[in-house]
């Protein structure tokens, strides 16, 4: 554990909590892509199956359970509790265009051809593209509420901090995880355009039409 990793995890948690609190308090999920949130729930589910097989640390276990619970709570709020406010007309990104290549890649490129390793790899690849339905929705409607942009900022910051963590770990422990690093860099690149808008235009984002 190093400061970049810890800051990354905190940033990830903050992002998820911002989104959940926004939906809970406003009793609305307008402008939020339910499809992205389902993909993130799938990411956590397939990655954290090792909860049942290996014990790493109390921190690791608690965080995994928290991320799983929060991601399912978010999906529940969008599709059940506040489904009347769900903007399904603008949440139209075809997720099979992400899922099919990601499933294929996780079978081709993995650390071991075992169910758990393939699912872990699948989750890493899927996470890198899971935000695309949300970004697509913002492009389609041409706007995002400021609280939604804070969510995206912390979500992007999380993987960027993990890159610093990987550099740190390589230098101090000689540890590197090629699949996670490549996917993490790809994931962060997807946020660069958004980071630029966030910084230059302020919180509320309107894309040029």
């Amino acid at each position: 554990m190093n400061i970049f990793r810890l800051a990354g995890d905190v940033s990830h948690l903050v992002a998820i909590l911002i989104l959940l609190m926004k939906i809970w308090r406003s009793k609305s999920c307008a402008g939020i892509s339910g499809r992205s949130q389902v993909l993130f729930a799938l990411v956590f589910t397939t990655r954290y199956l090792d909860l049942f097989t290996v014990y790493i640390s109390a921190y690791n276990t608690v965080m995994k359970v928290v991320f799983l619970a929060l991601s399912y709570a978010t999906v529940y709020l969008i599709y059940m509790r506040f489904r009347n406010s769900y903007d399904s007309e603008n949440d139209t990104f075809r997720v099979e265009f992400l899922l099919i290549p990601v499933i294929g890649l996780s079978f081709l490129e993995n650390y071991a051809f075992t169910p758990l390793e393939i699912l872990w790899t699948f989750s890493i690849f899927l996470e890198s593209v899971a935000i695309m339905p949300q970004l697509f929705m913002i492009t389609k409607t041409g706007e995002a509420e400021s609280i939604t942009t804070h969510y995206l900022f912390f979500l992007g910051l999380y993987r960027a901090l993990y890159i610093a963590n990987w550099v740190w770990r390589y230098h101090t422990e000689g540890f590197y995880d090629q699949i996670a690093i490549v996917s993490g860099v790809v994931q962060t690149i997807f946020y660069c355009d958004f980071f630029y808008l966030y910084v230059t235009r302020g919180e509320e984002i309107r894309t040029p039409s």
Partner: peptide
């Protein structure tokens, strides 16, 4: 992965 340790990152 670089070693056989479990995936310790989140």
């Amino acid at each position: 992965k670089a070693d056989e340790a479990a995936h310790d990152e989140l």
